[in-house]
Every structure is written in C-alpha cells, then in structure tokens.
Computed example of a mutant assay.
Amino acid sequence: MAAVPEIMDRIYKNVMSKVQEMNVFQRTLFKLGYDYKLEQIKKGYDAPLCNVILFKKVKALLGGNVRMMLCGGAPLSPQTQRFMNICFCCPVGQGYGLTETCGAGTITEVSDYSTGRVGAPLTCCEIKLRDWVEGGYRNQDKPHPRGEIVIGGPNVSMGYFKNEERNLEDFYVDENGQRWFCTGDIGEFHSDGCLQIIDRKKDLVKLQAGEYVSLGKVEAALKNCPFIDNICAYANR
C-alpha cells in the first residue's frame, strides 16, 4: 500500500478514537500490548501473540493482507509511523524524491524499522549535501554531515519550461557533465548511508530572536491532535 502522510494520519486518528470508546479493561489491554510490541520492535523482534489477539481487527481495516506500506510526498511523523508498524503488523517504508528528479531519490529497506529516515540513494542517482551557512548546516558537522540535499544523475530533468531564472537558480552542471538539482531540503546522512530530512530552506520562518522554525513540523505535530482535523500554518513576514 502506498499513501501520503495525510492518509496515514487519518487512519491513526480514526483507530485511536475507537480505542478511546473501549471499556477500561480493553483500553488497558490494548495499551499494554502496544507498549510491549513497541519495545520488541526497537530490539528488532516481533510480537506474534499480540498480532493475533490485539491487532488482528485493526489489520483487517485495510483488508488484512497488507505486507508493506510505503509513504512519500511529505514527512511522516515518527508517532504515526510507529503506530502503523505496530497495529498493521508490517514495515512502513519512506521514499524521497521530487518531480524535478522524476520521483527518484532514496527509499528505505524493508527491514529498516527506524523512524524519520528515508533510506539510501537509488542506483540511478547520486546525492550530496551542500553547506547552508545561514541556517547553520554544514557537511562537516558532527556526528553526521548536514546540509542542503543536491541530487545528480540522468534522472534529473532539463529544467523548468520557459523559466530560465529558476533554472539558473536550481540546476547546474558540474565539470564532469553531470546535471544536479538543488532541492531546498536540508538532510543529514547517517553512518550507514541513510538520509534523514531534518529541515527545509523555503519552509523556515525566522523569529525575532533569530531562531528558525519549520512550519511543516508544526503542522505535523498538530495534525495528531484529536481536536484538529486539518491545519495550515502561515507566517506573515
């Protein structure tokens, strides 16, 4: 099953609202099973008994035969990702790419149960991090290099139609003739080669104290609130 975070967030809120309608015993049993399986997943194990007794009905909401979920299009909150892992008894992978790179970029391994990461680069492209000094991100940062994500390879498009100004701003060709696209997303490479999206240049708002705040992160956090159906954060600079 492939879906955007908005769909998974709605599934999460719908199931949790059903849990709140259970009696005290059922609700307590669900929470104990959820917490137990969460600990097992963090250790690299599963909880087959919990899958059969507690999560079988939840899994049946999507037909009961889903073996893997793939999310893309926007950042998926770790809370929602863990919930889908546990209650639907399957791995939830994330992919990263843009229209300008023909959708290709990175994708997580099926066995990777970590949250917040989008996997290693695909074979069709290369990815590097470019310093963004204003935001405080550099590819020499410790413990992991950070910076603006730049994607290069044959999958990168030739540019925007009749928009030479944007083409000069977002695309460039290196000395080897390879075409690169500057995504505007801020990433961090982990020691195993997996990429994590940690910020976005165009999504940031600079506060009076000089601190940068990501509106996307604010929206993702508030969407999990049971009193909020949908939200759009806007800053008038």
Rank of each mutant, 00 (worst) to 15 (best):
residue 2 A to V: 12
residue 3 A to Q: 10
residue 6 E to T: 10
residue 8 M to H: 15
residue 9 D to H: 03
residue 10 R to G: 07
residue 12 Y to V: 01
residue 12 Y to L: 00
residue 17 S to D: 10
residue 24 V to G: 01
residue 24 V to S: 10
residue 32 L to C: 00
residue 33 G to P: 01
residue 35 D to R: 00
residue 40 Q to P: 00
residue 41 I to T: 00
residue 42 K to W: 00
residue 45 Y to R: 00
residue 45 Y to W: 02
residue 51 N to S: 11
residue 54 L to H: 04
residue 57 K to F: 07
residue 61 L to E: 08
residue 62 L to M: 06
residue 65 N to D: 15
residue 65 N to T: 15
residue 66 V to Y: 03
residue 68 M to I: 08
residue 73 G to K: 11
residue 79 Q to M: 00
residue 81 Q to F: 00
residue 83 F to P: 01
residue 92 V to Q: 05
residue 93 G to Q: 15
residue 97 G to T: 04
residue 97 G to I: 07
residue 98 L to W: 11
residue 102 C to H: 03
residue 106 T to Q: 02
residue 108 T to Q: 15
residue 109 E to V: 01
residue 120 A to F: 03
residue 120 A to V: 13
residue 122 L to T: 14
residue 127 I to R: 07
residue 133 V to W: 07
residue 134 E to A: 03
residue 135 G to C: 09
residue 138 R to H: 13
residue 141 D to W: 05
residue 142 K to W: 03
residue 143 P to D: 07
residue 143 P to T: 06
residue 145 P to I: 14
residue 145 P to E: 10
residue 147 G to I: 06
residue 147 G to D: 09
residue 147 G to W: 09
residue 150 V to T: 07
residue 153 G to I: 06
residue 154 P to W: 05
residue 155 N to F: 04
residue 157 S to R: 03
residue 162 K to M: 10
residue 164 E to H: 12
residue 165 E to P: 02
residue 166 R to I: 07
residue 166 R to D: 12
residue 173 V to G: 13
residue 181 F to Q: 09
residue 182 C to L: 11
residue 182 C to N: 13
residue 185 D to G: 03
residue 190 H to Q: 13
residue 193 G to I: 06
residue 193 G to P: 02
residue 193 G to D: 02
residue 193 G to A: 05
residue 194 C to P: 01
residue 195 L to N: 04
residue 200 R to A: 13
residue 201 K to S: 05
residue 202 K to Y: 09
residue 202 K to A: 04
residue 203 D to H: 12
residue 204 L to S: 11
residue 206 K to T: 05
residue 208 Q to T: 12
residue 208 Q to R: 12
residue 210 G to P: 13
residue 212 Y to P: 06
residue 216 G to F: 10
residue 220 A to R: 13
residue 220 A to G: 03
residue 225 C to Y: 02
residue 227 F to V: 12
residue 228 I to V: 14
residue 233 A to P: 04
